[in-house]
């Protein structure tokens, strides 16, 4: 395998008595779309949280482009090109769509101790923002206040914001959660296009989308990665089917 863009080694995180990450090791080579599936409570979002820097692991290492980023603060990881989207939509609701994305562009255009020029009139912020919006199909919604967007549009905007940081790798936490079939199909198309240029780690419950998009799939149960393989192999893996589907039935009760 080529040198991994993202390499996780023995990542462990406890919350009280609960083991959210139990010695996770995973390698994602450049250009791969790697899907992470598993029942609710398997620790997928906790893993993303540790990768993006919001959660500090108890043990283990995270390497990005060969560099140890385990102890780096959130904004530094973002600067290195690791961008995340949120499972629960996390936007600047009182800003316009374009302002949201322009802010993401600004985050990667030097420091922001600039007190004088009107940021809304800076083309070097607005143009890349418009481009990112066009890629997710939100170009005609630029001037709408985000609070007035539909749920599906919020999800699209989530992706546009991550894109606007010119990332090398996207960490997408259930980008299709709560979407209707039409919106989902559109998102699959968008992700299919992004995958041509970017490395992606995708958490998703929509199995149709996962098997349509993923180059490789890892299955998580109770904080462990129980399998990591090509989609065909995962589909055929009896252990995975049993563990994942079995878990799903019991997990539904307390999720």
């Amino acid at each position: 395998m080529a040198e991994a863009l993202l390499r996780i080694e023995g990542l462990t995180k406890h919350f009280g008595g609960v083991v959210a990450s139990d010695g996770i090791s995973l390698a994602v080579p450049p250009g791969e779309l790697h899907a992470l599936i598993g029942p609710n409570g398997a620790g997928k979002t906790t893993l993303i949280g540790q990768l993006s820097g919001e959660i500090v692991p108890d043990a283990g290492r995270i390497r990005f482009e060969g560099r140890d980023i385990t102890a780096l603060p959130i904004y530094r990881r973002s600067a290195l090109g690791l961008a995340r989207s949120f499972q629960i939509t996390s936007l600047f609701l009182d800003f316009t769509v374009l302002d949201n994305v322009a802010l993401a562009v600004q985050a990667h255009d030097g420091h922001s101790f600039r007190f004088w020029r009107d940021a809304r009139e800076e083309t070097r912020l607005r143009e890349p923002a418009r481009a990112a919006l066009a890629r997710v199909g939100l170009a005609d919604r630029s001037d709408v206040v985000v609070a007035n967007l539909s749920h599906g549009e919020h999800r699209q905007l989530e992706i546009a914001m991550a894109l606007a940081t010119s990332p090398r790798m996207l960490l997408l936490d259930e980008p299709m959660a709560g979407m209707g079939p039409e919106e989902s199909a559109r998102m699959v198309k968008t992700l299919g296009e992004l995958k041509q240029e970017l490395t992606i780690l995708l958490i998703e419950h929509d199995m149709e989308a996962v098997f349509a998009l993923a180059d490789r799939i890892s299955v998580m149960v109770y904080g462990r990665v129980i399998a990591s393989d090509f989609p065909d192999k995962i589909r055929a893996n009896a252990e995975v089917r049993q563990a994942y589907l079995g878990e799903r039935e019991t997990a539904g009760g307390h999720a």
Partner: peptide
């Protein structure tokens, strides 16, 4: 200004500001 956008973004959603 850019500075003002950061301040307001941070009021709106500081977690996201750090993430981007």
């Amino acid at each position: 200004s850019r500075f003002g956008m950061v301040i307001q973004g941070s009021r709106s959603n500081d977690r996201r500001m750090q993430a981007i």
